Amino acid sequence: MFCQNCGKQIPENAKFCNHCGAVQMNGSFRNIQQGTPPHTEQPPPAATPTVAVAATAALPAH
């Protein structure tokens, strides 16, 4: 079975994950597809901030 928190493999019917320490909900809450770690969605990457660049021109000296 796999940890419901970190997805690492742990002994069957473990009460706690020996990798991250998370409490495991066994029984009806157990991952139905044994052998497949739970899917963890990653948040979308943060938008890159836009930086305004001001252009300056040097005028010839008179």
Score class of each variant (00 low, 15 high):
residue 29 F to P: 00
residue 55 A to G: 06
residue 10 I to M: 12
residue 52 A to S: 08
residue 42 Q to A: 08
residue 25 M to D: 12
residue 48 T to N: 06
residue 25 M to V: 10
residue 13 N to Q: 15
residue 9 Q to F: 13
residue 4 Q to M: 13
residue 32 I to L: 01
residue 2 F to C: 06
residue 18 N to F: 15
residue 2 F to S: 08
residue 10 I to W: 02
residue 57 A to T: 11
residue 21 G to P: 08
residue 35 G to K: 06
residue 15 K to A: 14
residue 47 A to L: 12
residue 37 P to W: 02
residue 21 G to C: 08
residue 17 C to N: 04
residue 37 P to C: 05
residue 44 P to Q: 02
residue 19 H to A: 15
residue 27 G to N: 14
residue 58 A to H: 04
residue 53 V to N: 13
residue 13 N to G: 08
residue 54 A to S: 07
residue 53 V to D: 15
residue 7 G to I: 01
residue 7 G to C: 03
residue 1 M to P: 05
residue 42 Q to E: 05
residue 54 A to K: 15
residue 8 K to N: 12
residue 20 C to S: 10
residue 22 A to I: 01
residue 9 Q to R: 15
residue 57 A to D: 12
residue 5 N to D: 04
residue 14 A to F: 02
residue 54 A to P: 08
residue 24 Q to G: 10
residue 34 Q to A: 12
residue 25 M to Y: 09
residue 24 Q to C: 06
residue 32 I to P: 14
residue 30 R to E: 14
residue 51 V to H: 05
residue 38 P to T: 07
residue 59 L to I: 06
residue 59 L to T: 13
residue 25 M to R: 12
residue 5 N to E: 10
residue 29 F to W: 11
residue 10 I to G: 12
residue 1 M to H: 05
residue 47 A to N: 03
residue 14 A to P: 05
residue 16 F to N: 15
residue 19 H to M: 13
residue 56 T to H: 09
residue 53 V to A: 15
residue 20 C to F: 04
residue 35 G to E: 04
residue 62 H to W: 01
residue 21 G to K: 06
residue 6 C to N: 09
residue 10 I to L: 08
residue 17 C to Y: 03
residue 6 C to I: 10
residue 24 Q to H: 03
residue 42 Q to G: 01
residue 17 C to R: 07
residue 50 T to M: 12
residue 6 C to Q: 08
residue 22 A to S: 13
residue 51 V to P: 01
residue 14 A to G: 07
residue 50 T to N: 07
residue 20 C to Y: 11
residue 30 R to T: 04
residue 8 K to G: 08
residue 26 N to T: 14
residue 30 R to L: 04
residue 2 F to T: 09
residue 38 P to I: 02
residue 34 Q to G: 04
residue 37 P to L: 11
residue 61 A to P: 00
residue 53 V to T: 14
residue 6 C to R: 07
residue 7 G to F: 01
residue 62 H to N: 12
residue 21 G to S: 11
residue 24 Q to N: 04
residue 8 K to S: 13
residue 20 C to R: 14
residue 46 A to N: 05
residue 62 H to S: 10
residue 13 N to L: 13
residue 20 C to K: 13
residue 27 G to M: 14
residue 19 H to I: 15
residue 40 T to A: 07
residue 26 N to Y: 08
residue 48 T to M: 11
residue 23 V to P: 03
residue 45 P to A: 09
residue 52 A to N: 10
residue 30 R to M: 07
residue 61 A to E: 00
residue 38 P to R: 13
residue 19 H to Q: 12
residue 36 T to Y: 00
residue 45 P to V: 03
residue 31 N to V: 08
residue 25 M to G: 02
residue 24 Q to M: 05
residue 61 A to K: 00
residue 10 I to S: 11
residue 60 P to C: 00
residue 5 N to F: 04
residue 32 I to R: 06
residue 33 Q to I: 02
residue 51 V to Q: 09
residue 58 A to R: 07
residue 39 H to K: 06
residue 38 P to K: 15
residue 61 A to T: 02
residue 39 H to D: 04
residue 15 K to D: 10
residue 39 H to L: 09
residue 49 P to M: 02
residue 36 T to M: 01
residue 43 P to I: 02
residue 40 T to H: 04
residue 31 N to Q: 03
residue 60 P to V: 01
residue 10 I to Q: 10
residue 25 M to F: 10
residue 25 M to C: 05
residue 54 A to T: 14
residue 32 I to T: 04
residue 45 P to K: 13
residue 56 T to W: 11
